[in-house]
Amino acid sequence: MATLHLLSHSPFADGRLNSCLRLLGAADGLLLCGDAVYALQPGTTQLQILEQLPASIALYVLEEDLQARALPVPARVQAVDYPAFVELCGRYAKVNSWL
C-alpha cells in the first residue's frame, strides 16, 4: 500500500524532510510543494540526497511553487500542476501530509 508523502516546509528550517526520508517505502512517492521545494536548490545536500533515492521512489514537485522561487526542475524530479497533483493523490493507496 504505497503512500504519497506531501511536504511543504523548507528543509533548511525543519526536520520533516529528513524524517520522511527515513520512513519512505520503496514504492512510495514524495511531492514537494510550498517552501519544501527549496530541497531542489542546486548544489545542496538535500538535492543530492533526493537524486540518490532509488528509482522506484517517484519524486514530484508542484511546478508553480518551484517557478515562484526561480528554481530549475532537476532531471530526477517530475513537475506537476494542480490537476496532476490531485490525480496523483488518487493514484496512491494513501496520502501522508506532513503538517
Partner: peptide, 11 residues
Amino acid sequence: LAALLDQYDQV
C-alpha cells in the same frame, strides 16, 4: 517504520 506505514489503510 516503512513497514508500519505500509500496514495501515490511512495515515
